[in-house]
């Protein structure tokens, strides 16, 4: 392996998410019960999983992370283009624009954290404009606005996380079931292989 260009391009979370969704579609990893499970289709799917298990794990974890960080399926490309065109009006560095798109800051504090020397480079008015530009294109979802509410909901949020964990465990259980089925298949393959090897030996003997 050779690294030719270490950093060819920077990607936004949105682009990565789109790519992951595509991979999941291609491999039909939906993490939910399929509508009609044809036997043939299922078999082929499981074979693939064997070699691509790492890819499946990372796409699953990463897409969950991105969804929890206000990434959603109905993000529109036009909105992103709109936001970027708006950001281009300001003298921002490329990585600063990328971070604004990724984090979608809702408060001045976070904006100041993202933009270096924000107080020297921009007036407060400009910063407010930046924030409204973000919220115009990406209106805050429920739970994101109203900071006081969020603090009160802290406990509930924890419960939410716990619930998710439970669901994960359930999923794992399901996976385990699948694995046992696979093992049967593997045994079959082993039998086949042994037959083949035996066949080859016979051939060799004939050759000799």
């Amino acid at each position: 392996m050779k690294v030719e260009v270490a950093r060819d391009k920077l990607l936004s979370n949105y682009e990565v998410y789109e790519h992951l969704v595509e991979i999941q579609k291609e491999n039909s990893w939906s993490y939910s019960i399929p509508d009609d499970g044809k036997k043939e289709g299922k078999r082929r799917k499981k074979r693939k999983v064997d070699t691509l298990i790492d890819l499946e794990i990372i796409t699953k974890d990463l897409s969950r992370y991105l969804v929890q960080n206000s990434q959603s399926n109905d993000t529109k490309v036009e909105k992103i283009v709109n936001l970027m065109l708006g950001l281009n009006m300001y003298k921002l560095e490329r990585i600063e624009k990328l971070q604004i798109l990724n984090l979608l800051p809702r408060s001045l504090v976070l904006l100041y954290a993202i933009i270096e020397d924000c107080d020297q480079r921009f007036t407060e008015e400009q910063c407010e404009d930046l924030l409204s530009l973000v919220s115009d294109n990406f209106p805050p979802q429920d739970g994101e606005d109203g900071q006081m509410e969020v603090i009160e909901d802290g406990e509930e949020k924890k419960d939410g996380r716990a619930k998710e964990k439970d669901e994960e465990e359930e999923e794992e259980e399901e996976e385990e079931e699948l694995i046992t089925i696979e093992e049967d298949e593997i045994e079959n393959i082993h039998d086949e292989l042994e037959h083949e090897v035996a066949g080859k030996k016979v051939e060799k003997e004939i050759d000799e």
Partner: peptide, 10 residues
Amino acid sequence: MFQLSVLSDL
């Protein structure tokens, strides 16, 4: 957070 890198491999 994410980037693209060009690699070559056999």
